[in-house]
């Protein structure tokens, strides 16, 4: 099967000479058709540049970009079978919502009646019926987001690129849109390439995640793979909370040179059979769990206690005994 999107040793350098910045550094990536793929990384990691190179707004300095098996490396955006939902939505302020959504059909010279009917159909799909004659400025942020989505979907692209589309929404709305986007993607069967710096978003929506750091892809895998078996220290720490242990602490606690242990895998228990003993230095309440920081072997270990478990949350400076399964420890390459 041909990949929906394929990057072949793609690099992108901005500026020249001493000021040159390598935003994307020799990235290889294959995204399958119908997949919900997320590029996850901190801001400035180069994930948006990757999206812009697939969309055609930035040309790669070297390497090739394929969409549906076609080399599009040097094609302009309007020739590529992908559409983008922009971070700021980029709706046309001088057009009605309906004309915004119908824009891709308008530039392809579809008859007015057809494109308006299709636009209304798409507005219903994104659960915004009846706002067609309004201007974008009259809509809320969440509504504008849906209009941008409808506009990007109307010409049935092979791949939909979403550039941190939920970043400007408040938490409740964001969670609602996450599940709606996921449902929509499953229903339409279109490949989604989603960009985010939010690990929760990436874990909950994606079929696969590519973790980006400093212009390089550190790891590509399912959410479970990325979370449970990170290949690098960066991935371990960026995706979810992690105790990354090194040096003497790692040797004493896990018998490895460098290891990761998720806080929710640690429980408190009796002295007998405990993996470590330490003093509580911080207690943070998060609602569904309480995070303890425990000083042991010269390092600080985080342990999450689920709310409502039989265990009492220990007070500050109490001595506690930490337990975990051997399988909870994941070895990392040193460095």
């Amino acid at each position: 099967m041909t990949a929906a999107v394929s990057l072949d040793r793609v690099s992108c350098t901005f500026g020249t000479g001493a000021q040159a910045v390598r935003a994307v550094d020799s990235v290889d990536l294959n995204i399958d058709a119908g997949e919900f793929f997320t590029l996850l990384g901190p801001s400035g990691s180069g994930k948006t540049t990757v999206l812009r190179m697939i969309g055609g707004f930035t040309l790669p300095s070297s390497g090739r970009v394929f969409i549906g098996g076609q080399d599009v490396s040097h094609q302009p955006p309007y020739a590529r079978p992908v559409n983008t939902v922009f971070q700021d939505y980029a709706l046309f302020p001088h057009m009605s919502v309906r004309d915004n959504v119908a824009y891709p059909l308008m530039v392809r010279k579809a008859p007015r009646a057809l494109r308006e009917a299709k636009a209304d159909q798409l507005l219903t799909l994104v659960q915004l019926p009846g706002v067609g004659s309004r201007r974008p400025a009259q809509l809320s942020g969440g509504q504008r987001q849906r209009v941008a989505l409808a506009r990007a979907l109307i010409s049935e692209p092979q791949v939909l690129l979403l550039d941190e589309p939920l970043g400007a929404l408040d938490l409740k709305l964001r969670e609602q849109m996450q599940s709606e986007l996921k449902t929509l993607q499953r229903r339409l069967g279109i490949t989604f390439l989603f960009i985010t710096h939010d690990q929760h978003e990436a874990l909950s929506m994606s079929d696969r995640i590519g973790v980006f750091n400093q212009g390089r892809l550190e790891q590509v895998g399912t959410p479970q793979q990325v979370y449970d078996t990170p290949t690098t220290r960066f991935v371990a720490q960026f995706v979810g909370a992690a105790n990354v242990l090194q040096g003497e602490a790692a040797q004493r606690l896990t018998g490895m040179a460098c290891a990761m242990l998720r806080p929710e895998r640690i429980t408190l228990g009796p002295q007998a059979g405990a993996k470590a003993e330490g003093q509580v230095s911080e207690v943070q309440y998060f609602g569904s769990f309480t995070r303890l920081k425990v000083q042991t072997w010269g390092t600080s270990v985080q342990a999450d206690l689920p709310t409502g478990s039989a265990l009492m949350v220990p007070p500050l400076s109490a001595t506690v005994h930490l337990h975990w399964d051997a399988g909870a420890v994941h070895a990392l390459a040193t460095g």
Partner: peptide
């Protein structure tokens, strides 16, 4: 971004000029 969106949605340079 509105100019990029126009190109992304299939408008050639002349169409982007005229419509946006």
């Amino acid at each position: 971004s509105t100019l990029e969106a126009s190109a992304d949605l299939g408008a050639h340079t002349a169409q982007t000029f005229r419509s946006v």
